[in-house]
């Protein structure tokens, strides 16, 4: 199997409205990595994720998941990916257990395997007691965890998390990160976008910073943090190192 979980070459996307979302992005994520894709709102992070997962059509460029081209070998490439989108996207009238078991079905996993696996995921993510409640009755944090459980039901080797902790309280965020760390320990590659930069700083091995559809910096976390100018004068508010670098690279 390819040593890279994700290989993106010269990826471009222009929406019908004329908005240029990506202007030639190239990126590789090594297998087993915990990778942060950071950028301000509208930088192109969600567009990249949309293209990789098959929810957005690219204008040009190539994307490979574990060596499988997403256009030529779509079905194979998709079997590796689990995705937690930015927006809640399950049927609110369905029950958590059915949502996850149905998702397993779309990957060809029979119910006799899917049900116990889904129950275990619900236990791991603290949702087991809510498994037969309507999804609309879950709290915001529970909905996020349900989306993580759904993304993991087919045991993907590449998990994509698009701002999974947006609107989630501190305690819950910490428990989610702990859970995700156990996944990387098992060899799952994680691509994360988040606005909580201090968490990305602690969790991720590699980082790419995107601004206006172009990668402005990429490398190991140490390499990115090394861009920090310790002698620079503060304007009164002192943020974390990654945040300072981020602001320096993405400001107008």
């Amino acid at each position: 199997m390819n040593e890279n979980a994700l290989t993106i070459n010269d990826l471009k996307k222009t929406y019908k409205s004329g908005t240029v979302a990506l202007q030639g992005v190239s990126l590789t994520i090594p297998k087993g990595d915990f990778f942060a894709l950071l950028g301000p709102n509208g930088a192109g992070k969600t567009t990249i994720i949309g293209i990789v997962t098959g929810l957005v059509n690219k204008s040009s460029g190539t994307v490979e998941v574990f060596g499988h081209d997403i256009e030529k070998d779509t079905e194979k490439a998709k079997t590796f990916i689990g995705v937690v989108g930015q927006e809640i996207n399950f049927n609110p009238f369905e029950r958590p257990l059915s949502i996850i078991v149905n998702q397993a079905g779309y990957y060809g996993i029979p119910r006799n395997i899917a049900v116990p696996r889904a129950e275990q995921l619900l236990k791991d993510l603290g949702l087991y007691e809510k498994r037969n409640q309507r999804a609309m009755e879950l709290s915001g944090g529970m909905k996020r965890r349900l989306m993580i459980a759904r993304a993991l039901i087919h045991e993907p080797q590449f998990l994509i998390l698009d701002e999974p902790t947006a609107g989630v309280d501190v305690e819950l965020r910490r428990s989610m990160w702990e859970y995700l760390k156990t996944l990387t320990a098992k060899g799952v590659t994680i691509l994360l976008t988040t606005h909580y930069l201090e968490e990305a700083e602690q969790l991720c091995k590699h980082v790419a910073i995107i601004n206006k559809g172009a990668i402005v910096a990429k490398g190991t976390m140490e390499e990115i943090l090394a861009l920090h100018d310790d002698t620079a004068e503060s304007d009164g508010y002192r943020a974390g190192k990654l945040e300072e670098v981020f602001i320096k690279l993405t400001k107008e």
Binding site: L55, K76, K78, E87, Q103, Y106, Y107, G108
Partner: peptide, 18 residues
């Protein structure tokens, strides 16, 4: 409804279902 309201059509579109 799956496409517009709950957007759960994504569940199918991200899967390998042809």
């Amino acid at each position: 409804q799956a496409k517009f309201f709950s957007r759960n059509i994504d569940e199918l579109l991200v899967s390998p279902t042809p």
